[in-house]
Computed example of a mutant assay.
Amino acid sequence: MSDYEFILVDDPAPWVRRITLNRPEKRNAMNNALRGEVFKALEIADRDDSIRVTILRGAGKAFCAGYDLAGANGQEQPYYTPGGIGNWPRHVVQGWFTIWDLAKPVIAQVHGYCLAGGTELATACDLVYVAEDAQIGYPPVRTMSPPDMQFHPWMLGMRHAMELMLTGDAMNGVEAVEKGFANRAYPAEQLDEKVLEHAERVAKVPADIQQMNKRSIHHAMEIMGMRAAIRAGTEVQALAFFTETSQTYRAELRKGVTQALSKRDETFGDYRTQGQKKAGD
């Protein structure tokens, strides 16, 4: 299981596979190569009769800080998506639904930052367990666009979704559970142990019946329109790129990612600018 550059794979318990995003120096920001390795490892686990559940987690201080904005994500994408306007949001949503459609359950183990595309990765999983002090948010709504995968109203309900979409603020792990994004929150130092306990309980159910259990929930959500609404949301995301604010911000990103992100968040005093004085204080 060592034929990967950006992930680690191990089997920490019987029936349990674990995939660790392994770009800690980048807070596990996702480039196309990393995403491709994740999808490959998940497919291998889904085909393996000795595996019944997979855990996804991040190495270092964060689960995943989002997409790698310096990663040339329009090139060498890990699977084909028709090109043209809106290719990127359609592409990533296609991938996240690949996880949704796997036969076997996937668990997201979230600690530290879980931002932007990182929240989409967690959303694609079947169960989400978080550290109490995790920071979960979608700050690109402040200057770029709505999410590629617009999960907010489905996971959080209208009012919580609206607040997070209109501010780009983050939830901590406890709030994420209260608002419906995550299943349970634990102290960070207990998260590995607790997630493995949940995975072992899930793995007690044979895979042939578990895939039916999983599909029953997904079919119910699809009948209510979740899949169609999320796919439709990709068109709104693509349209947002033509706004003046988004074009200006993306020009700043091309000059320097770190500087642009700091400028985005400094008036809010959060994320990488945590602790800085807010405008008007």
Rank of each mutant, 00 (worst) to 15 (best):
V141I: 13
M212T: 09
L8K: 15
F242N: 10
G83F: 14
Y138L: 14
R23G: 08
S50N: 12
V106F: 00
H91T: 06
R142W: 11
R250H: 11
I223Q: 08
A13P: 02
L127S: 10
R27T: 11
E266R: 11
I44Q: 13
E163F: 09
E132T: 07
D133P: 06
A170W: 02
G180L: 03
E178F: 06
Y186L: 00
Q135S: 14
Q211K: 13
W15G: 01
E25M: 08
K179C: 09
S262F: 15
G269H: 06
F63I: 00
D270T: 13
A122F: 06
A124N: 01
V9C: 10
N32Q: 12
V205Q: 01
P147D: 03
V110I: 15
R227M: 04
P153T: 00
Q94D: 12
S50G: 10
Q135H: 07
V202E: 03
S262L: 14
T123Y: 13
P147Q: 10
E197M: 12
E193Y: 08
P78R: 05
Q259V: 15
M221K: 06
L121G: 08
E252C: 11
Q247S: 14
L69P: 00
Y4P: 01
M30N: 02
I209M: 12
V38S: 01
G180W: 04
P105M: 03
W154V: 05
R264Q: 03
T54K: 08
A260T: 01
Q274K: 11
K263L: 09
F242V: 06
V93E: 01
